[in-house]
């Protein structure tokens, strides 16, 4: 049993390595993300400015050597705010995706393996969540809970789990019919152990892909919610909020809105590259 588990992990790891080796765009995406993570972690050392420091003498400076992305309507250094904003976007990309995929994995495995009435109701719940235009459901959740960063994690997890649950369930359904499951049952392994030790590890590759592909969606959703005013609140340097702040000054100071958007675009693109590469390497059937 130990060996089997080990093998599953080894091949998954090998698949991931292969994805980046064979797929240059995926590798490019990975490099961009690594740079971004480093910038976000070491933000205070990367830039001499404070993201919240107001300098009214320096409002709307054009991008220059001193202010790479220029300054905003309060004279705050925009590059600094974008770098600090990367912390938010990365956290928003990773944490709700992890929560959503974990919930989806548990519910998917349980509903696929045990099936029956429980499985049926889990899937109907997923149907209900997926019936909503995702942004509107997130808006409703944020409206109810209040616009804070923490609630964004909840809203995006609520929106994200259903898709993962569906994919995992269909996999669990086919794994359930495999011989090794029958063998495990025959020697008296308990259902919960079969799910944890056999069904779940076999779903891991797809979960990895689902997780990676959820990240860009989560980042875009956070940016959209913050742009609409139901996400992060000022003066948090959330990327969506930065663009939103800049839209009033589009004609006089276009960089204030445009440059933070470039950051969103590149980050989402990088995660999409990684997601596509992983999917092609691990599980081509998830395509489309």
């Amino acid at each position: 049993m130990e060996k089997e588990k080990l093998l599953a992990h080894e091949t998954l790891f090998a698949d991931i390595i292969r994805a980046f080796k064979e797929n240059k765009t995926a590798l490019f995406g990975l490099i961009v993300v690594v740079i971004l993570v480093v910038l976000a972690i070491f933000a205070p050392y990367v830039t001499p400015y404070d993201p919240y420091e107001i300098d009214l003498n320096n409002r709307f400076s054009k991008p220059s050597l001193n202010h790479w992305f220029g300054t905003d309507m309060f004279g705050r250094d925009l590059f600094t705010r974008v770098i600090y904003g990367a912390r938010i976007s990365l956290a928003i990309g990773l944490i709700p995706s992890l929560i959503a995929v974990s919930i989806g994995a548990i519910l998917g495995v349980v509903s696929g393996y045990i099936g029956g009435r429980l499985g049926y109701w889990v899937m109907r719940m997923a149907d209900v969540v997926m019936a909503f235009p995702s942004l509107l459901l997130a808006i409703v959740v944020m409206y109810t809970l209040g616009a804070t960063l923490f609630n964004l994690f909840i809203a995006l997890s609520v929106v994200g789990w259903a898709g993962a649950a569906r994919v995992v369930r269909s996999q669990a359904l086919s794994i359930r019919e495999k011989e090794f499951i029958e063998a495990a049952k025959a020697i008296g392994v308990k259902d919960i152990k079969i799910m944890a030790r056999h069904v779940f590890p076999n779903c891991l590759p797809s979960l990895m892909v689902l997780f990676t592909m959820n990240i860009p969606d989560a980042i875009l959703s956070e940016a959209s919610l913050s742009f609409l005013g139901v996400g992060a609140q000022p003066p948090t340097p959330s990327w969506g909020l930065l663009v939103s702040n800049g839209k009033e000054f589009l004609f006089s100071a276009p960089w204030v809105a445009i440059l933070p958007g470039v950051a969103i675009f590149i980050t989402v693109l990088a995660f999409n590259f990684i997601g596509d590469g992983l999917r092609d390497a691990i599980d081509p059937y998830l395509k489309g």
């Binding site: 860009p216 875009l220 940016a223 959209s224 742009f227 969506g240 663009v243 939103s244 800049g246 839209k247 589009l250 004609f251 276009p254 809105a257 445009i258 958007g261 969103i264 675009f265 989402v268 693109l269 999409n272 590259f273 596509d276």
Partner: peptide
């Protein structure tokens, strides 16, 4: 295509406004 999928709609909207309208 990937660019289209990766661009935040509110941002591309502002870009279009800036270039084609302003």
């Amino acid at each position: 295509s990937l660019a289209g999928v990766s661009m935040p709609v509110f941002w591309s909207a502002l870009l279009f406004q800036y270039v084609f309208a302003l």
